[in-house]
Computed example of a mutant assay.
Amino acid sequence: MVKPRQRLTGDLATAFSAYVVALYTGPDGMSISAICEKTARSYGNIHRILTAAKITMRNRGGDQRPSRAAEPRKEHHEDDVVVRGASADTRLPVDDSAEVGGAAGRST
């Protein structure tokens, strides 16, 4: 349809824009990257065409992190100490053998 690096003006630009919009919004809904490969146009060029046509962009590929539901839950001891941090709570196991506030380490 359009040669790579061919300047798009007038009716040719309008036709190419309609073609790109159809590829993006069609039943298969090609990605911008796939349209780039198919048309030999840059990502920015395809993105500008879709933006100019006032097409609502789809979200990117989604959350790439594993879901929290998939992670096994850790068992916590009821005496664990909870340390509140900026990102999350951290549980530290309590060592019952250590003396707290005792005479350990003091010389008499």
Rank of each mutant, 00 (worst) to 15 (best):
D80S: 12
E78W: 10
E71G: 05
A22M: 04
K3N: 11
E37F: 03
G85R: 15
L23A: 06
I49W: 05
T39A: 05
R48C: 09
G10P: 12
E78I: 11
L50E: 11
G85F: 01
D63S: 06
A88I: 01
D95M: 03
S107V: 12
V81K: 13
A86N: 07
D79I: 09
D79T: 13
V100A: 04
Y24M: 08
S97K: 07
A40L: 08
T25R: 09
A52P: 01
L8R: 14
T39W: 06
N45P: 00
I49M: 15
I46G: 12
C36V: 09
G102K: 04
K38T: 13
T14Y: 02
K38S: 10
L50D: 12
R60M: 10
P93E: 02
Q64F: 09
D28L: 08
V94S: 02
D63H: 06
K38G: 00
P27V: 06
C36E: 15
D79Q: 02
S107F: 13
D79P: 01
D63N: 14
R68P: 02
I35W: 08
M1A: 11
H76Y: 14
A34N: 10
F16E: 13
R65K: 09
D28F: 03
G29R: 15
A13C: 01
D96V: 11
G105H: 01
G26D: 03
G62C: 06
S42C: 04
K74H: 10
G105K: 07
Y19A: 02
T108Y: 09
G105R: 08
I32F: 02
D28C: 04
E71T: 11
G44H: 11
